[in-house]
Design a protein around this nucleic acid. Structure first.
Length: 135
DNA sequence: GCCAACGTTGGC
DNA sequence: GCCAACGTTGGC
């Protein structure tokens, strides 16, 4: 089971919105690298939910409930969407500054390439972030 | 097919 | 508000 991280501006769509909605279609990704990751997602896989802009922290865990399908909002047909549902909020948000300061997370894809909106998280990185989040 | 110009994202 | 990083576009 792979693990992932998605970014969202909380003003646009927050983790609270996801909890309210129960699930959401994660579409609008128009970046090839991110799209490749979306295509690799399988139902049941877990996803860290990161707020960019306001907050700049991992605020919750979500899961993939539907694997990649064509993004209806994409006229070119190149990009895909998935469906995500909330699992639980973290006990304590983990900020970007904390993640950058943690040696175990030096290789984290979202830190290495900060503009990537969907990125993979390795098992040890996942464990480190959740530990920082209070489990 | 190359590369400069431009647009977007996101941290600071 | 600025700037760095990076993707995309379009002229040649």
């Amino acid at each position: 089971m792979a693990q992932w991280l998605v970014k969202s501006e909380p003003d646009t769509y927050s983790f609270e919105d996801l909890q309210k909605d129960g699930k959401t279609v994660w579409d609008g990704v128009r970046n090839n690298a991110a799209a490749l990751h979306l295509k690799a997602m399988k139902a049941g896989e877990e996803v860290l939910f990161y707020h960019s802009g306001e907050g700049k922290s991992v605020v919750g865990v979500a899961k993939v409930v539907k694997a990649a399908f064509p993004d209806a909002s994409d006229l070119t047909g190149r990009f895909v969407a998935v469906e995500l549902a909330p699992v639980r909020p973290v006990k304590r948000p983990v900020t970007l500054a904390e993640m950058k300061a943690e040696p175990a997370l030096a290789g984290l894809e979202m830190i290495r390439q900060s503009r990537l909106s969907v990125s993979p998280v390795k098992p040890d990185e996942w464990a480190a972030i959740l530990q920082m989040a209070g489990g």
